[in-house]
């Protein structure tokens, strides 16, 4: 089974349909082997209409190069990808990173909102990952 991603510029992405409780929609996930958890960022959380009340605070802190952010967990999220078999459905927890946008200057908020959601190792490592920018090949495989 093969899930094919796409390069946009030099960055590898996968399109995924997410469903959690009453919320569902499509997201563009940056494949990020540096991220331990698949994580939705501010723009997508807002776009999907997931309210703060639906977010369960994570038991572990989340930190990146830019510092720490508020972290939450969405339990048992159904993630659907297009594959060569039609569709592939995974179910797993997905993390949510929330910046405190109300306390930041507008230009910084705009930059933060540009950050894509990421596909982390918790998902990537369920597959064999092929990332070959020079040939334009980006895919997740498993037998």
């Amino acid at each position: 089974m093969i899930i094919r991603g796409r390069f946009v510029g030099d960055a590898p992405y996968f399109a995924a349909h997410v469903r959690v409780g009453q919320f569902e929609g499509v997201v563009w996930l940056l494949a990020d082997t540096g991220a331990s958890r698949t994580t939705l960022l501010d723009r997508d959380v807002s776009r999907l209409g997931i309210p703060p009340a639906a977010l369960e605070p994570a038991s572990l802190p989340m930190i990146g190069v830019g510092g720490s952010v508020r972290s939450f967990v969405l339990r048992d999220v159904k993630l659907t990808f297009v594959s060569d078999e039609g569709e592939t459905v995974l179910q797993q927890d997905v993390w949510v990173a929330q910046h405190d946008l109300d306390r930041l200057p507008a230009e910084e908020v705009a930059r933060i909102l540009r950050i894509p959601s990421v596909m982390g190792r918790d998902l990537i490592n369920r597959f064999r990952l092929i990332c070959d920018y020079r040939s334009g090949t980006m895919q997740l495989e498993r037998q």
Partner: peptide, 22 residues
């Protein structure tokens, strides 16, 4: 059972992302 609607939506979404870049 395969969800053709979701598959089509994902393909369109991906094409739209690439369209912006192009």
């Amino acid at each position: 059972m395969m969800n053709e609607g979701v598959i089509e939506e994902l393909r369109t979404f991906e094409e739209d992302q690439v369209w912006i870049s192009d």
